[in-house]
Nucleic acid binder design. Structure first.
Lengths: 246, 246
DNA sequence: GCGCCCACTTGATTTCAATCAAAGTCCTCC
DNA sequence: GGAGGACTTTGATTGAAATCAAGTGGGCGC
């Protein structure tokens, strides 16, 4: 193995939102050693890590969607994060996973062996700063979600989730806000429920209600179109600006 | 003004949990310039920043307690974080406050002018790394709270909050776990409600219930003692280990 | 000492979402 | 094509917390 400018080959086609450490897409240049990195694929439904597992790598999502969740003793579970392409998983300086990480679709991850990665962080200030930025974004997102979980009604929760997915989807497609949007839900009703702190029945009922009232249109169970994004935003309870990180 | 090793004078008596960038208490040595730092005092109840305010500083809490909260259009509010002595406030690279920050007690903050602080971050890798660690801790705490908000019952929420405060208090006093603990609640019933995603009436009822059943004892409205910490932990719904960052 | 205010408690009632239960739909695999 | 299973919808009922509505109690200024 030789030293290469990491990512300039393997990550050439990384998604728009890719903002991870293996970065062709980033303006700041990070030079990593090829040898600390490797790819792993997880199939849909597969558990990537259980809480308490020893993890000898950190990783970024190349493609697919994974979830972070926590569970109470009696089995109640709460999703605490979504990992989308470009998102970072694992914590430098911590061996153990603190969440259950599950692939909801097929997931490809770009893994970095822990020790060399931590060493790299020490010697490459850019990496720590990049990770700090990303972690601050995640913290904002988590806090936004706290507001949703603590204070929003079921209807507002559903509308918020749909708005977030729609908006993210729109930004991927570079279509403009305000018009009609279409997308596929990447989550089952149960996963939505776990994310929103609801039951799957309530999720189903509220989705049906929004459909009945024309706020959204459903084609099949998962394909959604939003005729009027502003109308949807009205249902979220939010001030209708605020960047809402995802 | 002259260059000094920051913190070695001013922060000599910082609390045990002080883990901020002005660190005598830390093992890693950070040298900051005296001139970018200044102290500010806020009185109890005073708003330190409103969402959207321009903030020209970042800061660490020296003493007192402040809260971070978010509000929906119709006034429902959710507290998304507590700032305790040593906690960091503000985000490098962002001008605007994204939360309402309120002093619940008298608060002394050690402020750093934004620009020089950001410059310092670029030139002093330790700072970015320290901030990254702290931010990761906050993220863990936020996600722990998501589980609480999304899935715990009112009773479990109250027990969790009391357990966290009791534990933190115990660690400050270096008393051992398992025995009887006493502490003063630093929050009103309303603030507890905002933190837990409940109403103040529900908080009051559940506190009364825990008292009635002997899980806690009340002296006055705010002074609480916990005869059996393990008994309290049973009420939280958690696995009874897990470091639970605060 | 008196009254006032604020934080808190307690009670009655309502409401929203959970729970329990039963179908319905779509997809895959034989 | 039909059976089986995963996912989803819908209905009936229950239940936990919100809401509405009085109180209580303690600290403080006058």
């Amino acid at each position: 193995m030789q030293d290469v400018e990491f990512g300039h080959v393997e990550c050439a086609d990384c998604p728009i939102r890719h903002r991870a450490v293996c970065s062709r897409c980033e303006t700041d240049e990070l030079v990593l050693l090829e040898e600390i990195k490797y790819y792993r694929t997880f199939e849909a439904g597969q558990t990537i890590a259980w809480t308490g597992d020893k993890l000898d790598f950190v990783a970024t999502v190349v493609s697919g969607i994974a979830t972070l969740s926590q569970t109470l003793e009696d089995g109640r579970t709460q999703m605490v994060g979504l990992l989308l392409p470009s998102d970072f998983m694992g914590r430098p300086g911590r061996e153990m996973a603190t969440y259950d990480v599950t692939a909801t679709t097929e997931v490809v991850m770009c893994c970095f062996r822990r020790r060399p990665f931590e060493e790299l962080m020490r010697t490459t200030p850019h990496i720590a700063q990049r990770l700090l930025e990303m972690t601050l974004d995640e913290l904002d997102a988590a806090r936004e979600w706290m507001l949703l979980l603590g204070r929003k009604t079921a209807r507002e929760k559903i509308a918020s989730l749909l708005a977030i997915i729609a908006r993210r989807d729109a930004s991927l497609k570079l279509s403009k806000a305000g018009g009609s949007l279409e997308f596929d839900l990447p989550l089952t009703r149960e996963a939505m429920a776990d994310y929103l702190g609801l039951t799957l029945e309530t999720v189903s009922r509220q989705v049906s209600a929004l459909k009945r009232e024309g706020v959204i249109e459903l084609a099949g169970k998962r394909h959604i179109s939003v005729p009027d994004f502003d109308r949807l935003m009205l249902e979220t309870g939010d001030d209708c600006d605020g960047g809402m990180p995802f």
